[in-house]
Design a binder for these strands. Sequence first.
DNA 1: TTGTTTTCCGGAACCACGTTCCGTATATTT
DNA 2: AAATATACGGAACGTGGTTCCGGAAAACAA
Lengths: 199, 199
Amino acid sequence: MTESSEPGAGPRRAKRVDAFRNEQKLLDAAASVFVEVGVDAPVRAVAAAAGVGVGTIYRHFPTRADLVVAVYRHQVDMLAAAGPSLLATSGSPDAAVRDWLDQFVDFLVTKHGLAAALQDDKVGAALHQHFVDHLVPVCAELLAAATKGSGGAGLTAYEVLRGVGNLCIGAGQDPMFDTRRVVRAYVSGVLIGEDVGRG
Amino acid sequence: MTESSEPGAGPRRAKRVDAFRNEQKLLDAAASVFVEVGVDAPVRAVAAAAGVGVGTIYRHFPTRADLVVAVYRHQVDMLAAAGPSLLATSGSPDAAVRDWLDQFVDFLVTKHGLAAALQDDKVGAALHQHFVDHLVPVCAELLAAATKGSGGAGLTAYEVLRGVGNLCIGAGQDPMFDTRRVVRAYVSGVLIGEDVGRG
DNA sequence: TTGTTTTCCGGAACCACGTTCCGTATATTT
DNA sequence: AAATATACGGAACGTGGTTCCGGAAAACAA
């Protein structure tokens, strides 16, 4: 008890420096492998790219999903941070919502298979959780501002966000499917009152 | 050439009766396994349920995707057939589009994982193709009638259909995501003119 | 019926992937 | 340097799709 200033949880020895290095190598390698072959790249491919064994991956990231989350954590956080500022810079709350969701789409579209991975029950659980925790509140705030007057279609922020996420699945792999345009239509439906087109 | 009334393509001998029986057993077994554990059920599970070996599956259906397509072929065809009649019975072209897409959603939602399977590059290719071939023309016809006046959001029938399909991914596995409602918003955005919400 | 031919069946075997395990190597501490 | 905690590599396991092939069975011929 001579050096345990914190009760219970603290590790008795600092993390080894090679462990730190490997974690970073892993994150870098994963990031570049993910852009090259998609987020569904085999774990072994990431390990090889990082020059480590598979065991090392699992020491740092208990499951493949955790690795994916770690790789994209920064970008998710930046997206979350961009919400409030857009509310100020964009012309209207509606525009802020559209702009923010555009950024969300850009984020998903540029990562091959990320949107699809979000749905996978195995890989998706952790990813999904992280996305929801960080992005839904921001989306809710933007939506609240945008639908203050009209009321919108009555969707929850989660539904809006997940809808956009779903629409991005397979983006880029299909020239006949213009993700931007489709999402724009969806967002229009979300922001408009629910009595549209009712005969 | 004594008994070849058809040139070239006909098999020289009729299919064996046990082969017919097995194909039917396979389709029945697959259908029930798919409703119980989802369309991503292991091939071996279907084989076991049908009381045949895996080899038998692959004799009748070259790949897992072909089995899935075969199982749902009837329902896809019925959905395709329902389009034109809805145009007559529904009050307006708009309503026809909404009703038809509702049926599409019902179809996808009641099959666990079907919508997701449509995206999978492996399983999805054959499925996707079949869906596109049979459903897109019908959707195009309905859309043409509905957007004759306003113009709509300018999406192609394929984009509309695939958008709805994407939105159905994961349906039923998430109480916080009301697929019906989300799709309704999307369809509203599709049918409305594209100048909505533009400040 | 018996023999021959063609088709079909079963399931072991193969490959790819996520994950676990453990003997060995290395950093840190004494 | 010795001791100890920590991390590493990669073989091994479980699961899933798919292929292969020896044997069984149906169809046809006699």
